[in-house]
Structures are given as C-alpha cells and as structure tokens.
Amino acid sequence: MEAIAPIPVAPPDFRSGFVALVGRPNVGKSTLFNHLLGQKVAITSPVAQTTRNRLRGILTTATAQFIFVDTPGIHKPHHRLGEVLVHNAKGVLNRVDAIVFVVDAASPPGRGDRYVAELLAKTQSPVLLAINKIDLLLEGEREQRQQAYQTLGPWPVYACSALTGEGVAALQGAIEQQLPLGPYYYPPEMVTDQPERFIMAELIREQILHHTREEVPHSVAVTIEQVQQERHITRVNAAIYVERPSQRAIVIGQGGQLLKQMGTAARQEIETLIGGKIYLELFVKVRPRWRQDRLRLMELGYRIEKD
C-alpha cells in the first residue's frame, strides 16, 4: 500500500467536523453514507440492522472535510448485542458537529421514527432531516410525504435518493454550512479510519446477508483470523460464527456450494478494496448464544464504545 501523505494546513475559511447519520434500521443510512463518500465503505443489504459498528468515512473537498459516522439503526433491542449497538448509536449524538436524521420516504413516519425524533430533540447538535428513497415515490406523493415527516421536529428537510444521487449534493451543501471552521483531521486521501481487516470482515458478512435466509443474518459474526501477504497474492483466512448447527448447515449449503458462492463474491469485493489478488478461505464455526454473552461479544469486537 502507498504511504499516506502528511496532513496539510487548512486555509482560514476551511470547515471540518463530525457528522452522524442516524435513524431507525433499514432506512438507507449506509447507502447514503457510501454515496456521500463516493465509494463503498459501509456494507448494505435489505436486512434490518445491517450496520453493527460506528463506521467513520472521510470526505475531503476543496472547502471542507466531513467525517461521516454511520451508526447502527436505533431500535428496541432484543438481546445483548442489540443493547450494545443501540447504546453506541445513542452515544454519538452529543459528540458530533451535525446530525443527519435519515428516514424512509417509502413509508409514512412510524413509532421508530418518532422515538429517534424524541432523542434528537434533546441533543445540542444541529439536525438535518433527510427523507431518503424519494425515487420510490411519484412526484405528487413527495410533497405529501415531506409534510408528514416535517411533523417530527423543527428541522430543515432535504429530500434525496441515496440510490440515484438525487438531492444528495444539496444535502451535502447544507451539512457543510453546519460545520465549524477547523483543520484537516485526516489526510485528504483517506476515506476511512477503519483497518483493512475490519472492512474485509464486513464485506464477507455482507455476502452472508445477501445469500442466506430467515434468522441466519442476525446470528452471524465474521472475524479475520489471518492475513498473509505474499509477492503476487494476499492470503486471507476468515471465520464465520453462527449460533446453531442448523445455521452452519445453511451457510455452508449443499456440498459447500453456498459458502463457495459467497466466498467468490466477497473475494471480488476485497480485491477491489486492496487493489490486488486475494486467496480467501472461509471457515464456519458454531458459538451458541454468542449475541447474549458479554465476553463473546467482546471477543468478536462488539463492546460499549467510550469515545
């Protein structure tokens, strides 16, 4: 990998700061996160609660540096893992320079949206309301849906589509105006501060979310066990953890075909990430009730975040 250039001195009128993307699960926060960054950093899927860690993405323009924080969807937790995720999502609210409250235009405001709105009403950070997925609405429906979401709070509203890009530039411009004058926090070339191993594990988990069914996606964790760099290829060993033997059988598939298919797709994504050839080997292991076990959650990288 190329060395990262030193952090330059920002001009006097340069703006910079931290921006949290928050909302209930499955409203398109990660897709919006990726679109703002101009490349894929966060994994996406139709499965709710896809994001499990606060993920930072860095966008540097000529006039500003945005540090976007993609948070897990705020919801009522049903296990220890859910409690950790929601605690960490809430914890970021008063430690950022701006908040983008993302809602789903495809449905009217619900209890989950109102719960998030109540939390945001208590924060000191400025809030922008982003009505995402407007590409799913007819022109006449957009105004009606916007009026419904405006009842959630006294925040400026920006209709957008993270999928098509419509309205995202206007949202980005509004976010920039909320950022204080400040320095570069990261070198302009950086896109995320997460290590490559974390992104690799997430790309593997993304393929499991896309290819498996029923309860399996929520019961899966992925860790990178070993990365060995050779002259022309990087060898990666990863462990996929599930809670029951039946889930292990689903992930492996008949004759190992599903695991092979997911591994091929993940390998292609990882090769794009690192810009080189990958040999990816996947192992599936059973860890009963890992989502309920505090120590196992910590072993797998899920813990209450302090900063």
Results as ranks from 00 to 15, higher is better:
Ala3Arg: 14
Ile4Phe: 10
Pro6Gln: 00
Ile7Asp: 05
Ile7Ser: 04
Pro8Glu: 12
Val9Gln: 13
Ala10Glu: 09
Asp13Glu: 15
Phe14Asn: 04
Phe18Thr: 06
Leu21Asn: 03
Val22Glu: 11
Thr31Asn: 06
Leu32Met: 02
Phe33Asp: 07
Phe33Gln: 05
Asn34Arg: 13
His35Ser: 11
Leu36Phe: 10
Lys40His: 08
Ile43Leu: 04
Ile43Pro: 10
Ala48His: 07
Gln49Arg: 07
Gln49Glu: 10
Arg52Leu: 05
Asn53Leu: 11
Leu59Tyr: 03
Gln65Ser: 06
Phe66Lys: 01
Phe66Asn: 00
Ile67Ser: 10
Ile67Arg: 04
Val69Lys: 02
Thr71Ala: 15
Gly73Leu: 11
Ile74Arg: 00
Ile74Glu: 01
Lys76Asp: 10
His78Glu: 14
Arg80Pro: 09
Gly82Phe: 05
Gly82Ile: 08
Val86Met: 08
Ala89Arg: 03
Gly91Ser: 12
Val92Ser: 14
Leu93Ile: 04
Ile99Ser: 03
Ile99Phe: 05
Phe101Cys: 09
Ala106Tyr: 00
Pro108Arg: 04
Gly112Glu: 10
Arg114Asn: 06
Arg114Gln: 13
Leu120Met: 07
Thr123Leu: 03
Ser125Pro: 00
Leu128Asn: 07
Ala130Glu: 13
Ile134Ser: 09
Asp135Met: 13
Asp135Val: 01
Leu136His: 09
Leu137Gln: 12
Glu139Tyr: 02
Gly140Pro: 00
Gly140Phe: 02
Gly140Ala: 09
Glu143Asn: 02
Ala148Pro: 00
Gln150Asn: 10
Pro154Thr: 06
Val157Gln: 02
Cys160Thr: 10
Leu163Gln: 14
Thr164Phe: 06
Thr164Leu: 06
Gly167Ala: 07
Val168Gln: 00
Gly173Ile: 01
Gly173Arg: 14
Ile175Cys: 07
Gln177Asp: 13
Leu179Ser: 09
Gly182Lys: 08
Gly182Asp: 09
Pro187Asp: 11
Pro188Trp: 12
Glu189Lys: 06
Val191Ser: 12
Gln194Trp: 11
Ile204Asp: 04
Arg205Ser: 06
Arg205Val: 11
His210Gly: 01
Arg213Trp: 11
His218Trp: 07
Ser219Cys: 06
Val222Ser: 08
Thr223Val: 12
Gln226Thr: 10
Val227Leu: 00
Gln228Thr: 14
Gln229Lys: 13
Ile233Cys: 13
Ile233Pro: 03
Thr234Tyr: 03
Arg235Val: 12
Ala238Phe: 03
Ala238Ser: 08
Ala238His: 03
Ala239Tyr: 08
Arg248Trp: 02
Gly253Ile: 08
Gly256Gln: 10
Gln257Tyr: 02
Leu259Thr: 01
Gln261Leu: 14
Gln261Pro: 00
Met262Tyr: 11
Ala265Pro: 03
Arg267Ser: 03
Arg267Trp: 06
Gln268Ala: 12
Glu269Asp: 14
Glu271Ser: 15
Leu273Tyr: 08
Ile274His: 04
Gly275Glu: 01
Gly275Ser: 05
Gly276Asn: 07
Tyr279Met: 13
Tyr279Ala: 13
Glu281Ser: 15
Leu282Ser: 05
Gln292Asn: 14
Gln292Ser: 14
Asp293Arg: 05
Arg294Cys: 01
Gly301Gln: 05
Tyr302Ile: 03
Arg303Ser: 14
Ile304Ser: 05
